[in-house]
Write a protein that binds this DNA or RNA. Sequence first.
DNA 1: TATGAATGAGCGTTCATTCAT
DNA 2: AATGAATGAACGCTCATTCAT
Lengths: 200, 200, 200, 200
Amino acid sequence: MIIDTARAVFAEQGPAATLDEVARLAGVGAGTLYRHFPDRDSLIHAVLADTLERMIALAEEARAEETWAWDALDHFVHGCAGLRLDLLVSVAGAQVHRVSATPEINEGRARLLAALDQIVHAAHDEGALRLDVGSGDVMGVVGLLVRGLPTLPADLGDELRDRAVRLVLAGMRAHPAPTPPGEAMTAEELSRRLAKQLDG
Amino acid sequence: MIIDTARAVFAEQGPAATLDEVARLAGVGAGTLYRHFPDRDSLIHAVLADTLERMIALAEEARAEETWAWDALDHFVHGCAGLRLDLLVSVAGAQVHRVSATPEINEGRARLLAALDQIVHAAHDEGALRLDVGSGDVMGVVGLLVRGLPTLPADLGDELRDRAVRLVLAGMRAHPAPTPPGEAMTAEELSRRLAKQLDG
Amino acid sequence: MIIDTARAVFAEQGPAATLDEVARLAGVGAGTLYRHFPDRDSLIHAVLADTLERMIALAEEARAEETWAWDALDHFVHGCAGLRLDLLVSVAGAQVHRVSATPEINEGRARLLAALDQIVHAAHDEGALRLDVGSGDVMGVVGLLVRGLPTLPADLGDELRDRAVRLVLAGMRAHPAPTPPGEAMTAEELSRRLAKQLDG
Amino acid sequence: MIIDTARAVFAEQGPAATLDEVARLAGVGAGTLYRHFPDRDSLIHAVLADTLERMIALAEEARAEETWAWDALDHFVHGCAGLRLDLLVSVAGAQVHRVSATPEINEGRARLLAALDQIVHAAHDEGALRLDVGSGDVMGVVGLLVRGLPTLPADLGDELRDRAVRLVLAGMRAHPAPTPPGEAMTAEELSRRLAKQLDG
DNA sequence: TATGAATGAGCGTTCATTCAT
DNA sequence: AATGAATGAACGCTCATTCAT
């Protein structure tokens, strides 16, 4: 699937990835890629739309699988982090205003927000989510946190992101922080692991 | 100053900005830019180093101006958001491993972590910061949150980021959430403001 | 008919027309076009051969319908101008040496020259055509004049071409110019009509 | 000079010539060509403008060097044929409406028509040029005849064009044809020479 | 030292041609 | 036989980098 390959290539190689590379890894000719996606924006649009669908599915899955709404929220936010949307967002960067102003994207966004809204309202009713935190906040936080930290080695970036996700969920909790993030990530630890990157 | 122009151009035009554009806006010839920064990595390195200096200065300023360590932490995190590091990080993306593996950058990172460590330890001693949150967590959160949300109109992105920053600070707080982020950003509000973007 | 479509497309869109466009307008798939004409030269060859047939038919019609050979010559030359061979010739351009070196094209040319020769000899016998003008001259003049003037609006180009055709026929006439081209096309008139083009 | 090379390449290789080929033959890099002429239209425009200048200079030269206005007219028309505008016109084809709708081109056309008008009026006064032939006719005829006959070998095409030019001048002459084009180009002669093309 | 024109490798894109259905 | 999606070579064009002035 070209879209999956595109997502992977953008995530791996960054915004500078060439579409020829996408075509090659997808196992098709360059012409075939361009037949399906006449220009770069078109491909980005398709990846964005596909990503929205995955997020919607994730929200519905979270609601269905978890008993408590708070757990569904936790499931959704951690799940988004696992989608590796990372560099896609930055790839989209410049083009995204143009690209995302389509009925398809907007309709997808609306569906996602609706699905998330149910979770958020239920979590409010449970008394687990602060009433001054809305579904817009959840989306904003997801948009910021699901990205990786490209300046860091992947595993360290993933760990820091998971800790940040837990912290923000703790901040959203109506009552005293229920999800301690474990051992503190100290400056010594961070320095030590960055040093390994330079050696490796 | 070429470095400031470069930061501004990358922030405005995204990763696709050409160095010719940087030179033009800086009011110098392309040759002059290359005299100072022999290649693209060199310019990115200079911007990263300059950014580190600003963050270090911000940490020291926060420590000096605030009485309570918790307030200094808040000052620092919110201040980083104001540096508009946004797109710089994504620009750096692919090149950054190469670029950031220099003595200058590493020494700067060490100085920043040291300055931040003082704030974090003091906040621990105050009892305001959860003991399981370290300076590495603060740096990770800053790295994730200072970026904008390129898919959203700038003012909405800024507001969501500020709310996320407050939430994460609330999650770091040792005792029940001290900084309520005000009114919830509901799905309705988010949808309404996104709709305005499409109309405008 | 693919050949007619090809002639029309080349005449309308110029040499840059794609064969996909020809296939689309002819209402067939690209594969079908290539089944009939294995490559671009093959299609051009077919259009050239078809055009030759039309010119031969025109020469024979002129001979049959006109009492005087001079009138038949006039009929043929003006008739060629109406075939809209225009851009075809320029399309052929680069490929034409290769393409026209086939028995079919050469045999067609020979038949056309033979038909024209009869007209020319009869016109010599009538005393209407200068003896120093041969059928080769007629073919050459036709080849030059049937093309349009692409830099001009179509109607003005057509009018100038018709006037040029009349002038050259006048020059071929054995005795003083028998076919005055009417009012002179003055520079003022030409400028005025070109100005209209820019306005419209 | 890139413009001269472009004219030559278009004349030699036809409309399909690549701009890289133009650059290569001009002895510059592709980038240099694109610096001077940002797109294909821009290069065509420059060649058109340059050609207009040459025609204007030719009209003025003809007027200055010839005693009789008729001879100046003859000089101009034959001179244009020597400019090898040939394929340029067909290259321009599709693009030319866009390209020629510029102040520079229009001003050049006006100057050319003015220069030609003087010759035409003087030739009218001499009694040598038919009064029903204007400068617009001369321009139209030039536009049609200066082109080569791409379907023929170059030398044969040149000869037929020269004969056509003489015929049209004869047709413009107020009194009986003054410029016999020599021996008739017979069908036999034409066939014989075309046969040589196939052998060679 | 500063300049900006020249360079040319490399990318996005097109389209003549093929081939599985 | 007809189709139209897939192919990939080739072209127009860009832009990081160099160098003569």
